[in-house]
Amino acid sequence: MKTWAILLGGLLVWAVHFFGLYAIAEFAPSRMLTVILTVPCLAAEALLLIYALRLDRDEAFTRWRRSVAVGGTGLGLVAVLWQALPPWFSG
């Protein structure tokens, strides 16, 4: 389970953020709520990224695991940042 959490963590945070935003937009549209959701998600992505960068890379398997984790959180970070933009453009 731990390996899967390392591999998928960044993208899981993305999923929480995206579906949270969709639920806010669908059921309770509010810019404030999107901020309240986005800030912890960004923090989580950043922490996961730091964690991933510090993972072991002593064997082929752990090296591979680390780079997938770093990439996943990096991509998640970019995607969460992008998703944070729309509320500021919809007047």
């Binding site: 969709y22 937009a25 810019r31 995607a79 933009l85």
Partner: peptide, 12 residues
């Protein structure tokens, strides 16, 4: 779709 909702899907 409201512009904010559409925006989330555009970003993704």
């Amino acid at each position: 779709l409201p512009p904010m909702t559409a925006g989330f899907f555009s970003a993704a």
